[in-house]
Nucleic acid binder design. Structure first.
Lengths: 112, 112
DNA sequence: TTCCTTGCCATAGTCTAACTATGGAACGAG
DNA sequence: CTCGTTCCATAGTTAGACTATGGCAAGGAA
């Protein structure tokens, strides 16, 4: 059961995964997010650092998250990201959009 | 119930929709494909010409389809696209990939 | 000590693919 | 004849994920 990496997380979906993860598990730093997503997807989705951090930068600019430097349990410096109100709203938007689009695609590809 | 247009069909999925449509409805020209996808998605997915034709060009290059000029019922010239063996194989690949990835995404976004 | 692994952040440059905008040609209807 | 529809196609832009690469700090291993 190979992992899915390159090209296989549909662009845009990464936002949804991050937003959801933050909404569930409170302020997290990047490393935790990547691990969390990987775990809750049962090791299928693997978020590369080169995808994650640029996405977080874009989300900062969009105002979906705020960031604050802190220290981890392991005594390392880390940047903690937290959902804003706009981020929560965006999550709801993307969730319903995802359901809608996914349903539509399924209708097409399940036609007999 | 607004239609979904720009940015909302996850990139890459267009291939899947086209491959599936061709596998069901035999050789089709572009216009028919767009209509077929729109109908079978219950008007949710709308494929723009500026997305469809470039995608078909790429699929020709990849060898997933072949094209042949013909004449429509309405007596217009049209280019009929047909799945190749490679295209059928690609469809199977993308179908299973799609199920796998979207299943994983669902797991993440449905976490309580 | 020195080294190596792990945790953690970040950017530059590349690539895919969908979008906008635009063009054209042929046909039927009014 | 003009207009809307059918049908094809490309150029240029944009978004976003990827590869590759860099750095720095903590802690254990040699």
């Amino acid at each position: 059961m190979p992992m899915i990496k390159r090209d296989e997380i549909p662009p845009g979906t990464l936002y949804l995964l991050i937003l959801k993860t933050l909404s569930l598990h409170g302020p997290l730093h990047g490393y935790e997010m990547a691990n969390s997503i990987q775990q809750s997807s049962e090791n299928i989705l693997q978020v590369e650092e080169g995808s994650l951090y640029p996405a977080l930068q874009r989300m900062l600019i969009k105002g979906w998250v705020t960031a604050e430097w802190g220290v981890t349990a392991g005594n390392r410096r880390a940047r903690y990201y937290k959902l804003t109100a706009a981020g929560r709203k965006q999550l709801q938007t993307e969730l319903s959009q995802f359901g809608r689009v996914f349903g539509a695609i399924n209708r097409v590809i399940q036609m007999a």
